[in-house]
Design a protein around this nucleic acid. Sequence first.
DNA 1: CGAGAAATTGACTTTTACGTAAGAACCGTG
DNA 2: CACGGTTCTTACGTAAAAGTCAATTTCTCG
Lengths: 128, 128
Amino acid sequence: MRDYYSITELTREFGISTRTLRFYEDEGLIKPVRRGRTRLYRPSDRHLVRQILRGRSIGFSIAEIREIIEVYKAPPGEIGQLKLMLSRISEKQQDLRQKRRDLEDTLEELSRAEEACVERLAELGVTT
Amino acid sequence: MRDYYSITELTREFGISTRTLRFYEDEGLIKPVRRGRTRLYRPSDRHLVRQILRGRSIGFSIAEIREIIEVYKAPPGEIGQLKLMLSRISEKQQDLRQKRRDLEDTLEELSRAEEACVERLAELGVTT
DNA sequence: CGAGAAATTGACTTTTACGTAAGAACCGTG
DNA sequence: CACGGTTCTTACGTAAAAGTCAATTTCTCG
């Protein structure tokens, strides 16, 4: 396990630009440490980036990703805070389950389209 | 099964604005028929809208949704075209499977966060 | 030590996906 | 026929998420 990653190492690993990483930092999503002015990304930062990109991939906005990141953080000490956190988590889970349904439905439609193509090809005497 | 839906009927059903529906039309995603200048949405248009919104929900851009819609269309008659279509479908399926992995991973992280909260509450003597 | 590579900040620009507002047409109803 | 409601087109506005460019600075290594 590496101690630190440079900004370009992460851009290469994740296929994003330095601008994107700095943008996420401006938005308060990640906080790499500094040596002088240079950013050093810890494994935890790297992991966070991965999570951010996953969120982005499934259509969450930066604001929503920020909310999700909030709940990834260590649970707070106070009971009220903990319960609030639980309800936020539950909200996000519902969002994700809805997205999952939408995704499965889309996959099904694609399968239907696929089958129609295969059948049409069979009619034309082509074996797939 | 209704013959036609008005634009506001669809906006209410899907919770979107008229602007959004006209925008999708400008983008060539839907083509409702007209009576005079007024748009009339057929059941097939309505179904397409549903698909568009599903695509949007899971983070596809208009351009990507357009591509997906292309493959929903009736399969073409020519063999080369059919094979091309099959390969496009397969591409989209892979995109979606990646998104599904991202989604499942995010759901798992949320579950972990949830458990941490529940445990912390238990330590504090709170029964969830 | 000097040159090139890599990193920084800051400012301006672009793309996407609509929002919003203006002005006009159409349609049924009292 | 005047009205309120719905719809239309056209056009400008905008927030989000970066892209791009310029001017510096800092590392590194031959």
